[in-house]
Amino acid sequence: MDQAELRELFSVEGLRLLDSLPPFDSTADVVRTVSDLRKAGHDAGLVAAVLNQAKLRHRATAKFGSFAERMLFTEAGLEQATRLGVAAHHAGRFADAGVKWVADLGCGIGADALAIAALELEVTAVERDEVTAAIAAYNLAPWSNARVEHSAAEEIDLAGVDGIYLDPARRDGARRLRDPGDWSPSLDFAFGLAELYPTGIKLGPGIDRELIPTEAEAQWISVERDVVELGLWFGALARPGIRRSALVISGMGTAEMTAAADSEDAEVGALGGFVYEPDGAVIRARLIGDLARAVNGRMLDPSIAYVTSDEAHHTPFATCFRVIEEFPLDKRTLKREIAARRIGTLEIKKRGVDIDPAEFRTALAPKGDASGTLMLTRIGSQRRALLVERVTF
């Protein structure tokens, strides 16, 4: 979004028109909609701005629920914004630690600042991009305890602040910045603040683990099996005795696995009657060994994140599959077996083998009215294929 589009959107006419639009419908005739709005006397720039915003609000519902209906967004800001449910967990850290005033440095469209303000903490949201800062100010306007500063994080006055939250920008336009020194603000700047204040830092879940300070609590968060972030927590925001955490959020609720360090690997053993696929947050946090022991399981291979057990246990930290049959990982054998079972809808999972699931599925030519799941992996030195089915508890 540029400044011209922002001015159109922030006009009284723009906001009224946006709120008057029916819910966004991706199947609607956009040309017809534009034509109708133009005939009603709205200029082309305004129509383009409000229709784009209506589309963004529709997409934002997945992250913000009904709050999205009264928020404004930019494309990049929505993509990078923290989901509201996750932001609530962040805000809770500050409230539980007794922090009264948080500086949200690199606030984007204001998602985390919104959650902090909702807990009646003072929050200063700082954003270096002028358009994004204006959007954040609009989104935070209902909270008198929140204010937005258009500034670089490194230049803001932190007098009176007793807690810091940072979400360093890790992109320059479409380009991903690999060097943490190039992030805005840099990771060194963020770690420097963590030495002075209770601090939370939001990072991508795939960050080099060597960069994680030993004194930080590292929490990987997944939402509906999608690992969305790594949060590093320092000082009073880090829980005593916890340095590794996997927080799993789903429609079934929230569950957390914690440890003082990476868990020790579980023993390697023979394939049992059940295989567990750990949640990505558990894998990233390196808590697979603890998961295996919780289900009385063992590893199929020390380097592959599958756990096997002779028992089926319900756990929020993994998906449990019943092993129907084991085969050699051979296309001709599997094609014959898939055909014999009339499997037409075939899900393929793989770990530890260099195979493209889409190409492999095409080669097997599944056809029929049944469905099935194949796990392609290694067991010891052998490449194996497991025909499995999900266990419903």
Rank of each mutant, 00 (worst) to 15 (best):
G41W: 04
G41T: 05
H42V: 05
D43T: 06
A44C: 04
G45Y: 03
L46Q: 14
V47Y: 01
V47M: 05
A48W: 00
A48N: 13
A49Y: 02
A49W: 00
L51K: 11
Q53T: 05
Q53M: 14
Q53C: 10
L56H: 06
R57Y: 07
R59Y: 08
K63W: 00
F64L: 13
F64Q: 08
S66W: 02
F67H: 09
L72A: 01
T74H: 13
A76K: 11
L78D: 03
L78Q: 00
E79P: 06
A81L: 07
R83H: 11
R83L: 02
L84A: 15
H89Q: 12
H90E: 09
H90I: 05
A91H: 11
A91F: 03
A91L: 13
G92L: 14
G92Y: 11
G92E: 03
F94I: 09
A95S: 08
A95F: 09
D96G: 03
D96T: 02
D96C: 03
A97M: 01
K100H: 10
A103G: 05
L105G: 05
D112C: 07
I116K: 10
E120H: 12
L121N: 04
L121M: 07
E122N: 15
E122L: 01
V123S: 07
V126P: 03
E127P: 11
E127R: 09
D129L: 12
V131I: 15
V131D: 00
T132P: 08
T132I: 12
A133T: 06
A133M: 06
A134C: 12
A137V: 12
Y138F: 15
